[in-house]
Structure formats: structure tokens, C-alpha cells
């Protein structure tokens, strides 16, 4: 066994580095495919124009991604407006009011919901929510911004609830007792003591929710109507960066400009989500640091 000790340690160490290797490889290979177009593309047009006309068979194309970026953030933002208050309410209920049995049941239910695949959510948006929006919300096209947001809200709620609940439970009981002893009712205790004390965790929950919603692909592809325009109302169909990559990549051949631009969208998406997640991570770390101090 002693003979194996060193080789095993090297193997373990190598595997330990696998996550860094993976992250580096993701950046390298996506940049590699996008590289030929980075020097050619007009970045001012890329970020300010809404004209998205990919080139076909060597004809020049136009690549204005503004509407896609706006669409991506719009659908994620509206989803958060719906998901965060409800998720926070549910987290407060679970951590402050529910009996242990109810808490366990709800947490298991939420965990199972988090596992529902995104294609199933997209399918629900396409077949269930879309007709409802046409009949009751006056939408002309049932797959639209609101549809995508509802689906994304349902998808990101489990994440928001579980992180918010962790943050609330991390607040020491002495805070709660002090609040109540000062004559606050539970409502006031939650709003004035718990929320401020847990605010970093709650903020992180919201950000991770945004990160999840921005990166979601299949659900958005099926539910948002895929129209390259800046939305003016909740029931306008939109198109997102993620859906653009997913729906156009199969028809773009390698070596074509279109193929490379789709990788460029991937880089943009990677940068956006990494930034959001890293900030959320720092916020959580900040929270832990404070708790230890």
C-alpha cells in the first residue's frame, strides 16, 4: 500500500484540479471557435443594433445583438420580480412559522421541483401557459416575455427559497429573541431584525436567481416566441441570447461567420453569468466573514 501512496496522491491532486482545468478549457475552446470573428466584427454594431441577419453562404451578415441582450435581461428581470417576493415569503414561512414536519415536507417538495428538467418547463410554457395567456391576458402570441418569465420564475423559485432560507436560519436566535423582547411582533421582527441581518444572503439568493434565469435555454427557447425585437409590453414575444444559440447553431456550419458569432454570444453569456455568480459568491463570503467576526 505504501508504494501506492505517492501515485494516489498525485492522482487525487490532479482530479482536484479538474474544475480549474474545466473552466480554463471552456474559455479556451469557446474563444478558439469565436476567434476568427472577433477581429472582424464591429462591436459598436454588435451592442447597439437590433439588426440580426446572419450571413448565409458567404454573403455578408449583420450582427446586432442588442435586442437579444435586452430580451435576455427582460425575461430574467420580470421573472425575478415575480419569483423573489414569493420565494422570500415562502422562505420566511419555512424558517419562522412552519412546524418541523411541515418544513421538512416543503423542503423536500422544493428540492424535487428544482429537479424538473428545463425542457419539461418549456413544454409547459408552450402547451399549457401559452393558451392561457391568449385567452386571459389578451396576448396575440402566447409564447412571449410574460410566458417565459412565469416559467423562469417557477424554475428559479426553489433556488431562491433554499438560499434565502439558509440565510434566515443563519441569523442567530438571540437576534430573534432580542427583537421579540423589545416588544416587536413577529411581523416587525422579520422585517426589521431578520431581513437586515440576512440581507447579504437574500441579495445573493436574488443574484443567483438572476444568474440561473439569464442562462436558462430550453425553457426560454420554447416559451418566449423567438422574435428579434425590443419588448414594449409584457406580452410581446422576444428572443434571448441563449435561445438564439440553441436554435441557430444546428443550421450554422463550422467555418461560417454565423457559427463564430454564435460562439461570441456564448462568450458574452459566459462573462455575464460568471460576473453575476462571482459577485453573489463574494456577497455570501462577506456574510460568512461577518458571522465569524
Amino acid at each position: 500500500m505504501d508504494r501506492l501512496e505517492k501515485p494516489i496522491e498525485y492522482l487525487v491532486r490532479l482530479c482536484g484540479w479538474s474544475s480549474i482545468i474545466s473552466v480554463a478549457a471552456i474559455f479556451i475552446f469557446i474563444f478558439r471557435e469565436a476567434a476568427p470573428v472577433i477581429s472582424k466584427i464591429n462591436f459598436i454594431e454588435f451592442f447597439t443594433s437590433t439588426e440580426w441577419h446572419p450571413s448565409k453562404h458567404g454573403e455578408p451578415g449583420e450582427y446586432g445583438a442588442l435586442a437579444l441582450i435586452v430580451g435576455n435581461f427582460a425575461v430574467a428581470g420580470v421573472a425575478m420580480v415575480m419569483a423573489f417576493p414569493l420565494g422570500l415569503g415562502a422562505a420566511v414561512f419555512i424558517s419562522e412559522f412552519a412546524s418541523p414536519k411541515v418544513r421538512e415536507t416543503l423542503k423536500i417538495g422544493i428540492e424535487l421541483l428544482a429537479a424538473v428538467p428545463s425542457i419539461v418547463w418549456g413544454f409547459i410554457g408552450l402547451t399549457v401557459i401559452s393558451p392561457l395567456l391568449v385567452d386571459h391576458a389578451g396576448a396575440e402570441i402566447g409564447t412571449n416575455l410574460l410566458n417565459g418569465s412565469i416559467i423562469l420564475a417557477l424554475m428559479s423559485v426553489p433556488l431562491i427559497v433554499s438560499i434565502s432560507e439558509d440565510a434566515l436560519r443563519a441569523v442567530p436566535d438571540s437576534y430573534r429573541e432580542a427583537g421579540l423582547a423589545l416588544g416587536a411582533n413577529k411581523w416587525e421582527m422579520v422585517a426589521r431584525v431578520l431581513f437586515p441581518a440576512a440581507k447579504n444572503g437574500l441579495l445573493a439568493a436574488c443574484m443567483l436567481g438572476v444568474g440561473r434565469a439569464v442562462g436558462e435555454t430550453m425553457a426560454v427557447l420554447l416559451a418566449t416566441g423567438n422574435t428579434n425585437q425590443i419588448p414594449h409590453s409584457l406580452i410581446d414575444p422576444i428572443k434571448t441570447l441563449t435561445a438564439t444559440i440553441a436554435s441557430e447553431m444546428n443550421d450554422a456550419a463550422r467555418g461560417e461567420e454565423h457559427f463564430q458569432v454564435l460562439f461570441l454570444l456564448g462568450i458574452l453569456l459566459l462573462v455575464i453569468t460568471c460576473t453575476i455568480n462571482l459577485i453573489a459568491d463574494l456577497v455570501i463570503k462577506g456574510m460568512k466573514g461577518k458571522a465569524n467576526a
Binding site: 480549474i20 473552466v23 442562462g215 435555454t217 455568480n277
Partner: peptide
């Protein structure tokens, strides 16, 4: 700490970006 950050980042990479990576790295390269 860098490894831990990489693990967190990797978990946050959108699935469609993983798809692009798979296409660029495994399918093509």
C-alpha cells in the same frame, strides 16, 4: 481558493455554454 471559485463558476455556467464548449472541444477539436 481558486479551485473553490472554479467549482462555483463551473456550476453557474449556462447549459448552452456547456453545449458550445462540448461542440468546440469534443466534437470538433
Amino acid at each position: 481558493r481558486a479551485i473553490m471559485i472554479a467549482v462555483t463558476s463551473l456550476a453557474g455556467v449556462p447549459s448552452i455554454v456547456h453545449a458550445l464548449f462540448g461542440l468546440g472541444a469534443f466534437v470538433v477539436a
